[in-house]
Amino acid sequence: MRATLIAFALGAAATALLAVAVALGLAALADAAGRETFTVGLGGIELVAFERTARGTATTFGPALAVLPLLGGALNAAGASLVRRRTGRSA
């Protein structure tokens, strides 16, 4: 149980870090490309929204940033249990 929780936490943290970095990268690309608005979502859930206003630019992180780490954590925990089972069998 402890090993599964660790795998979940690490997977969630890694996915969250990657999602934030991708969102920031996309916002910077949109800014460099001179886009007025730019939205990236995941099945209707917004990940990042970029908007150019009169006073500058605004980047908003959406709820997908909370959903993605949960998915990443679950996948990593499942993968870790699979790896443990395989190594256990070959040991």
């Binding site: 090993a3 660790i6 795998a7 690490l10 997977g11 943290a13 890694a14 996915t15 870090l17 990657l18 970095a21 991708v22 920031l24 990268g25 990443g72 990593n76 925990a77 993968g79 870790a80 699979l82 790896v83 443990r84 190594t87 256990g88």
Partner: peptide, 24 residues
Amino acid sequence: LALSLHALGFTVLTADGRTLCARR
């Protein structure tokens, strides 16, 4: 962004991640 891909090092996709996540 390229460096942030090292976050995958915490997951079972890499040898480091398997050392961290898949220990018995």
